[in-house]
């Protein structure tokens, strides 16, 4: 029994530690690095800001689908559905695509703008953005089947969802409702 506990403790602890380190490192880098104020590419969008808004919104929609799948798998809101191998594969595929979509966004935020706190909205955006990648790193390394602590993976997933929605709300949604829905 003690042996089982050790084997499950290690990956969960490591995942949480890596997640925390990722969030803190990102925040530290963004705070220390001198923002360049420049953009590398808009990949076809009319501006950097619209590119970031729409990529983030698309990623959010993908994460919503993934979240519903996870909730069904964990059975916390619906009936318990142990996730099949295929469901796990689809879950990972959606998460990977969503993560890929956010890479140009976080690169521009960190490299070009840095960690800023001039207003509550911008401060929240900076902090939540770092939390997103910390939670993402933790979920990627978290074991799928920890029978003793089934709550850990959904909890980290909920942190990821909360941080992502906060980042989207304080960035993309603010822009959509305050400035423009342009592409």
């Amino acid at each position: 029994m003690a042996e089982t506990s050790t084997t499950t403790d290690k990956p969960v602890g490591t995942a949480l530690l890596v997640g925390l380190s990722t969030a803190v490192s990102l925040g530290l880098y963004a705070s220390i690095h001198q923002p360049t104020g420049r953009a590398l590419s808009t990949i076809g969008f009319t501006s950097t800001i619209t590119m970031k808004n729409w990529l983030t919104t698309t990623a959010l929609l993908l994460l919503l689908v993934q979240g519903v799948m996870s909730i069904r798998a964990q059975g916390t809101l619906f009936t318990a559905h142990p996730q099949s191998t295929r469901q796990n594969d689809v879950h990972q595929l959606i998460g990977t695509v969503a993560f890929a979509l956010t890479l140009p966004v976080v690169f521009h935020c960190v490299w070009s703008l840095g960690y800023q706190t001039p207003t509550l909205r911008v401060g929240l955006h900076s902090a939540a953005g770092c939390a997103v990648y910390g939670a993402w790193a933790a979920t990627a390394l978290m074991p799928w089947h920890d029978q003793e602590r089934r709550w850990i993976r959904p909890t980290v997933g909920a942190v990821l969802a909360g941080a992502f929605v906060t980042t989207w709300w304080s960035g993309a949604l603010w822009y959509f409702t305050s400035v423009s829905w342009s592409i």
């Binding site: 953009a39 950097t48 800001i49 703008l113 001039p118 207003t119 822009y175 423009s180």
Partner: peptide, 13 residues
């Protein structure tokens, strides 16, 4: 610069 940390936000307005 405080209200628009990202100049492209200011440009959009």
């Amino acid at each position: 610069a405080e209200r628009f940390p990202d100049p492209s936000e200011q440009k959009a307005v």
